[in-house]
């Protein structure tokens, strides 16, 4: 096992997939000659050249649609959104064309593209650059979406996404790019639709995804040490498809649930999870399901306020204590 960053893990996945399949190419703003705004694609252009690693103008709608069209003929483009926030100027391409072409063609067409890039707040850049649209993506049948919380998952999910025959969004996180985890040297895949129990516990379940899963894990340790509460932490990894079974098994074991995500609460991913739990494990619940989401407002710029707006350990612990009350 090598200790590598989340950024390096994604780069390895891209590099390996480019080598494995001649149809895989990367496209986006500053991905080639500049080595990526966040250096995720560093060195790939030098190694694989203009055909496989392609700089685009600032034309998200055009290159997203172009990727969809190219994928119809077997090219497998991985498009980088410098920030997932910028995919909003390409919504028609991604949320109409990528998600519905297969359906509207009666299954005659499929769209094997990957849309990747950071989707997070906490970086002091204000409302226009801090979106977490995994809930919006999941609200569009035909699209898939994953939110890796660590380097191992980032690499494994990226490879799965590239090999997938449907459009898959990979939501990364700029605050995780520099963090390190153990990643095996040999090839592996993390399948879509499989959650990961980060920590086992008895008293309550925290369901989370992305960076919030890591914060929840930290909070779980504090809850155990300081409050004597044994917390099980389920990291969804994949939002759609969703591993209902792992969620429900954990809930049935603990009877109490806290949902933690960086999304804004209204129609966030956790709204769906909450529904599933009450529908399929109602009799196992010992109390209402609680949530910790971002405070319901556009992202504030001021750093200390933003740090309070998005979930943090303090707010998760507060939520957990409410859940146990």
């Amino acid at each position: 096992m090598a200790l590598i960053t989340y950024r390096e893990a994604i780069k390895q996945a891209l590099d390996e997939e480019i080598q494995r399949d001649e149809n895989v190419c990367i496209m986006g703003e500053e991905v080639a000659q500049y080595n990526g705004a966040y250096k995720v694609t560093e060195g790939l252009w030098a190694k694989h050249g203009d055909k496989r690693v392609i700089d685009t103008p600032i034309s998200e709608a055009a290159f997203s649609g172009l990727a969809i069209g190219a994928s119809a003929l077997g090219v497998r483009p991985v498009i980088e959104m410098m920030f997932m926030s910028f995919s909003y100027v390409a919504i028609d391409q991604l949320f109409n064309n990528a998600s519905f072409c297969r359906y509207m063609s009666g299954g005659l067409m499929n769209i094997p593209i990957v849309v990747r890039g950071p989707a997070n707040g906490g970086t002091n850049v204000g409302a226009t650059h801090s979106h977490t649209p995994e809930n919006m993506v999941a609200n569009h049948p035909g699209l898939k979406v994953v939110c890796p919380s660590n380097a191992y998952d980032a690499k494994g999910l990226m490879k799965a996404a590239i090999r997938d025959d449907d459009p898959v969004f990979v939501m990364e996180n700029t605050l995780l790019y520099g963090e390190k985890w153990e990643v095996p040297e040999e090839e592996y895949i993390v399948e879509l639709g499989v959650a990961n129990v980060l920590k086992e516990g008895e008293d309550m379940t925290i369901v989370s995804h992305g960076r919030c899963a890591m914060l929840s894990l930290q909070a779980a340790k504090t809850l155990e040490e300081k409050h004597g509460i044994s917390v099980e932490v389920v990291d969804l990894r994949s939002i759609r498809p969703l591993d209902e079974e792992t969620i429900l098994n954990s809930v049935k074991k603990t009877g109490r649930v806290l949902l933690v995500e960086e999304n804004k609460p209204y129609c966030g991913v956790d709204a769906q999870i909450s529904h599933i739990i009450q529908l399929k494990a109602f009799d196992y619940l010992d109390g209402p399901i609680h949530r910790v989401s971002s405070i319901d407002a556009p992202q504030i710029y001021a750093k200390p306020l933003e740090d309070w707006q998005i979930p943090n350990e303090e707010r998760i612990i507060e939520g957990a204590l409410k859940t146990m009350a």
Binding site: F86, N124, V125, A127, H129, Y301, A302, K303
Partner: peptide, 30 residues
């Protein structure tokens, strides 16, 4: 990011506004 800022610290460097001076921002999306 301070409260005394033109947008109370809500907008930041990229999002300055002063409608009283006919200045409508400061926009982050290209």
């Amino acid at each position: 990011g301070k409260y005394t800022g033109c947008s109370k610290g809500k907008g930041g460097s990229m999002h300055f506004f002063a409608p009283d001076k006919n200045y409508w921002g400061g926009h982050g999306i290209v």
